[in-house]
Amino acid sequence: MPDEPLIRARGLVKRFGDFTAVDGIDVDVHKGEAFGFLGPNGAGKSSTMRMIGCVSTPTGGTLRILDLDPTRDGPAIRARLGVCPQQDSLDPELTVRQNLTTYARYFGVSRRTARARAAELLEFVQLGERATSKVEPLSGGMKRRLTIARALVNEPEIVLLDEPTTGLDPQARHLVWERLFRLKQQGVTLVLTTHYMDEAEQLCDRLVVMDDGKIVAEGSPRALIEEHSSREVVELRFPDEALDAVAGKLDCLGERVEVLPDRILLYADDGDAAAAEVHRRGLVPAGVLVRRSTLEDVFLHLTGRTLVD
């Protein structure tokens, strides 16, 4: 892309004592893009987001945001960012509207403009009818939408969203996705972290997969799938059989075979052909499912299946 990226990191490092949370990452985020940081817990996503939000000082490398230096021009950058944090930080005793108007004042927005903008944003996140209710009784989805609205009171150029739909029910998640998509259409640059693959596929034009503080893959969701997984996956279930023994008979079928406790995954470009070959080799699976590869396959392949706590 010819234009200067809004966010540019080179060799960005964040250390806390001996622990390296972010280990030399390069990132470019361009105007109008929806950019995602994916990774398991502790991969360094939130530390990266905090540095971009200018509330954490990089330990090493360079970071430019909106062509400014975050260590020197923090307030000037933050004036043009919107931040939707992972944990709610709304005031439970103020009303829905007051949460927006008081926050707008931190950006030097006049009272009058703050009220007008609050009304507009509450319509946008479908909370118009709750304007005068307190925040405390709102559902998790409503609070998250209100937090997103609050992140927009200064008409930001970049919106940072740290796990925007974690903990929400499916209806609430879809509503949040739809609103974020609308924002993107309006030309707002979105930067988000998530560990939901469907969220990344829905929202992100481009993403990086982080593991252990490093970037292990980068690209559009489609390109990542093409690069790191087969086109299709065959899921095979066998009744009461040692799956390892079965897997031995699947040699050279597809690109890769993965044995899980309850099933075998066969990564192949033509899933139906691979499934037919399984039967031809005399194996009788109790269940066969041929599906397309997803980002989740890529993610688990790159970051492993081991649980990270």
Binding site: V55, P75, P85, Q87, S89, D91, Y103, F107, R150, N154
Partner: peptide, 14 residues
């Protein structure tokens, strides 16, 4: 609990 200060520091306040 309320995390008011965390929200404030994300705005252009010192």
């Amino acid at each position: 609990w309320i995390r008011t200060y965390h929200a404030m520091v994300a705005a252009p306040l010192r």
